[in-house]
Design a protein around this nucleic acid. Structure first.
Lengths: 212, 212
DNA sequence: CGGACTATTGAAGACGTTCAAGGTATGTGG
DNA sequence: CCACATACCTTGAACGTCTTCAATAGTCCG
């Protein structure tokens, strides 16, 4: 599939549920998502699923592959995805002054992963869902994909459950609680956050610098 | 690699509860643990604590610092710790054939972190504690610090609770369950695993290659 | 020997799960 | 345009795992 080399940036498309990478398969390339959402996950033998990373436009997928080793978890498209790709060797190796954007993005991902360990280990359902919605909004905003206080939110409640370590039923009830408290407006795959500060507090996350 | 530097390496010692690094403080050096255990954690405003990484002998602390950015979580010694240290720039940048041991260790750490997200999000108390003990044993064994089926286990039940996202009380009960089922023997800070395969199954982890 | 931390036990309660059913939206082919 | 299928969302009730609170016993170390 990837063998077709184009003149410009090589690009590739995926439909929902299509795999960008499979478990234990040597990755041929690293993707950069141009449009759409994807996720990495692990399935336990009895069907329990945990999503361990979400890839949004601009994200590398997966930066870790540049360090060597096969992907231990599959990556699948959640929506239609358009992506560029390039060889697995780190783009423009470090050493040239500051760390490149690529390595910074790896650092970001590790940081985000660490924050999620805290959320999964110690937070209530409300805090978990709040953290997720907040995370999505702020990442999309940094990429210029937020419009005022709004952004896209294509995840189903089952997918939210698999990110937050809850059941879909309880995610449903938790979203109702968040709506009832006026912390989020969420409908038709579109998210609006009336009061970012309030949601941050509800998510029990450290106050990031940017408040604008 | 780093442990084989001929001339005297600079070394430091830490006592239990002493900080190796504080939050938001520019790290001056990267440590390599020579002896003892340390951990990274985050504290929520109401006192909930989640440990997000455990550093055992041989581990770098923290490899992520080579990518730039300040540590967002403190690192504290759990036991007496002896450590070497060196500047934060990545030791012997990559490009010389395969990735260096340093980068592989970063890759290991990311992998371990991802596995912990699955455990914290989707596993029962028994599976969590089993996973932790298994993880410790296998890491120590790889460093030659296991003796047959046994290894040191200096963590208190409260520390186990802060790793597994449980309460100390429930950790206590879960350990009793593990003992009653003959999956672990644990006393006087010493761990024995009678049947590694059985414990792996109880932990619901993917079967690693090495079974010996 | 005293004090602080660690481990253990019991009882009550909360948060989230499970099971089951019904309702709503979306897309497809006739 | 409708009938139908599939996925997604919503609601209720019962249950279970883990938490919380509280008290006692054990261990370490000056």
């Amino acid at each position: 599939m990837l063998s077709q080399v184009a003149f410009k940036e090589p690009q590739v498309h995926f439909r929902p549920h299509q795999f960008l990478a499979r478990e234990d398969e040597e990755p041929a390339v690293i993707f950069q998502i141009d449009e759409g959402w994807a996720c990495r996950y692990r399935l336990l033998s009895d069907g329990r699923r945990q999503i361990t990373a979400l890839y949004l436009p601009g994200d590398y997928c997966d930066p870790q592959w540049a360090l060597g080793g096969k992907p231990s978890q599959p990556i699948v498209a959640l929506t239609n995805v358009r992506a560029s790709y390039f060889p697995c060797s780190p783009p423009a190796a470090s050493g040239t002054g500051g760390p490149s954007a690529f390595w910074l993005s790896l650092s970001d991902m590790i940081e985000r992963q660490t924050n999620w360990m805290v959320t999964l280990g110690r937070k209530t359902a409300l805090e978990r869902v709040a953290h997720l919605l907040l995370d999505l909004f702020e990442r999309l905003r940094r990429s210029g994909l937020a419009y005022g206080q709004q952004c896209a939110m294509p995840l189903t409640q089952t997918e939210i459950a698999d990110m937050t370590g809850l059941t879909p039923v309880h995610v449903n009830r938790t979203l109702q609680l968040l709506r009832a408290r006026g912390l989020v407006e969420l409908q038709a795959k579109w998210l609006r956050i009336p009061d970012l500060r309030a949601l941050r507090q509800a998510a029990a996350v450290r106050n990031q610098g940017a408040t604008a």
